[in-house]
Computed example of a mutant assay.
Amino acid sequence: MIMRAGGLMSVLGAVVSGTIAFASTNLDDIFVLMTLFSQRNSKFRNHHIVAGQYLGIAILTTFSIIAAYGILLLPKVWIGLLGLIPMYFGIKMLVEQLRNTSTASDEAEVQDIQFNEHDKNKTKRFSFLYRFISPYTVKVASITVANGGDNIGIYVPFFATSSLTRILIIIIVFVILIGVWCYAGYKLAENPLVSIVLERYGHIFIPFVFIGLGVHIIYSSGTLSYFFGNLFL
C-alpha cells in the first residue's frame, strides 16, 4: 500500500509539475493562437492551427529532451535568432498590404499567413513532404517554435532531472494542455467583442503582433546585445 501510494504521488507530482511548466512557458501562446484563429478563411482552417501547434510543441519538447541528455545544446543567444521567423511573417504581411491597397475587399485573403503564388511555386520542391503536412501547418509550427525560446530554457533542466517514466507522463500532460490552449485561443477569437475588434482593426495590428513577437524573442534571449557587443567591442 505504501509503495502504491508513493507511485500515485509520483504520478501526481509529474502531472502538477508538467502543468506548471507548460502553463508558465505558453501563456503568451494563447494570444498568438487567438490571432491565428482570427485569420481563418476557406483555405486556412482550424485543423491547420491545431496541427501546427502540436507539431511546434513536439519539436520544442523533443529538442529539449535531446539537449537535457547532453546530446545537443545551443546557446540561448543563438536560439533567439528564431525570432526572425515571426518578424518575417509580420513584415511580409505589411508589404502585401501596401501592394494591395487598391483591392481593399480582398484584405482577408491578403492579411493571413497563407502562401501566395510565389510561395506555392517555391514549395513544389517539397511536394512530397506537403502531401503529409500542409504548408499552413508548417507555418503555424514555425511560429510556435520561434516563440519557444523560454520553453527550451525551462524544459531542458526540467527534463534533465526527470526519469523516463516521469517524462512520458509529462508528455501526456503536454498533449492534453495543447488541446486546452487551442480551444482557449479559438474561443477568444470567437468572442463577439474580440472578433469585432479583429475584423475592424486586425489588418492593422496583426502584422505588428508578429513583428513585436519576433523582437521580444530576440531581445529576451540576449541575442541583440550579444551580437552588438561582439560587433562593436
Rank of each mutant, 00 (worst) to 15 (best):
T103N: 09
H48Q: 03
K120T: 12
I49M: 10
L164P: 00
I169E: 13
P135W: 09
R40W: 04
F126E: 02
F174A: 13
I91H: 06
L98A: 15
F63E: 06
V32W: 00
P157E: 05
T161S: 14
E117I: 05
D28T: 10
P192I: 05
M9G: 12
G214R: 12
A108V: 06
F128Y: 09
G214S: 08
T144N: 07
I218D: 06
L213G: 14
V140C: 07
I171T: 09
S127A: 13
K92W: 03
S127I: 07
D106V: 04
G7C: 05
S195L: 00
V50Q: 13
N116M: 05
L36S: 04
T165D: 06
R40N: 07
I218P: 01
F227G: 09
R200Y: 09
V110I: 15
R200P: 01
M93A: 15
V110E: 07
G56K: 04
F205Q: 10
D150K: 00
T35C: 11
Y201S: 08
F228A: 12
G202V: 05
V194W: 01
I178D: 10
S127N: 08
H47P: 00
P135K: 03
K139T: 14
G56P: 02
L82C: 02
I49S: 06
C182Q: 07
G7R: 11
K122T: 09
M87R: 11
Y226E: 15
S102M: 14
I71E: 11
V11T: 03
F208E: 12
D112W: 07
F132L: 15
S38K: 09
S17D: 13
M93Q: 09
